[in-house]
Nucleic acid binder design. Structure first.
Lengths: 185, 185
DNA sequence: ACCTGAACACCGTTCAAGT
DNA sequence: ACCTGAACACCGTTCAAGT
């Protein structure tokens, strides 16, 4: 009648994330996760409703860390400096999580929960508010996030292959964004 | 000894694309494609090496059409007008191809061929060259593409859910980009 | 209350055999 | 030269049976 819990949801999320990062999303099979946490495949369904749900949980954990990373990069003193710091921390995080980053805004994986979405929007809005002013805060935040996400996802997908210096393109755009967001028109 | 070809690679690509657009990427099974083109599953492997290869072929066809769409939106007269036209054609195309667009810069699906990549870069470079000048052409093209791709992919993924007017954010960023790319510094 | 083995439906892919 | 049926390995998921 008793029962011994031999694994946990956190262990499954951690294992799944490790598998994706090491061998790619296709390698994330329920059996591979079960093996990694030391349980049989069918036992996983006590904790998650299925593979898709597990992927979403992994994505939400990664988002959480991304928000933390960009948040710590800000100091609230110089708006332009903070925008650079935000973008650079964003990009560095994506590079440190090459395989899981693409899950974050993946239409296929389904959207993350609104709560997570809202928390993740906070630091971006803070960064741009000082530059663009409150009336353009949301639009400016969307401009910055769209560019940063687009850039790193194209970069990670290998879409920048026509030569040139990718870092230079990053800096060029960063300068341009500061100019653009400082308009106050 | 003879042989009758009962289908074609183009028919398979078209069927696959239809399946993705109607029922999502997961619904693209080799059997579903075979059914759609009127052949048995095992026959598909005469024409494509596997499911992954078929997805890449679909992605390349979609990219080709995207390039054509943005190309036709340009008139070469007014640089700022062309940038707007480019971006709006880009976004409209993505909305018309909600399910297949996410394949384009998908790290998972693997990169499209360098040849396709080069052809697709041409119109963007043309658009920004007039504004940003030749020395910043590549960086400016990357800024514009990154933003446009990031914006529409986040939009399609349902990432813009914190209220506000998404169209307004699009226009705001478009204005900002024109400002930023016109610097000539 | 959690774990297990067995089972099911469904994949992608291969290949010998047909015409 | 292309098509087919059968087979293989491998999925995700369910569920009755164990402890």
């Amino acid at each position: 009648m008793p029962a011994v819990a031999r694994t946990s949801t956190e262990a499954m999320v951690a294992a799944g994330r490790r598998i994706i990062e090491h061998d790619g999303l296709d390698a994330l099979t329920m059996l591979a996760v079960a093996d990694a946490v030391g349980v049989r495949g069918s036992s996983l369904y006590k904790r998650v409703s299925g593979r898709d749900a597990l992927v979403v949980m992994i994505a939400e954990q990664v988002i959480g860390e991304l928000v933390e990373a960009v948040d710590q990069a800000l100091d609230g003193e110089d708006a332009a400096r903070d925008l650079r710091a935000f973008a650079n921390a964003f990009r560095a995080f994506a590079h440190r999580n090459r395989a899981t980053y693409p899950l974050l805004f993946d239409a296929q994986a389904g959207p993350v929960s609104p709560a997570v979405l809202e928390r993740s929007a906070a630091p971006v809005r803070r960064v741009v508010a000082a530059l663009a002013g409150p009336e353009h805060e949301l639009s400016a935040a969307r401009m910055l996030t769209a560019w940063a996400h687009g850039f790193v996802s194209m970069e990670l997908a290998g879409a920048f292959q026509l030569g040139g210096d990718v870092d230079e393109a990053w800096e060029y755009a960063l300068d341009g964004l500061i100019t653009a967001l400082s308009r106050h028109d």
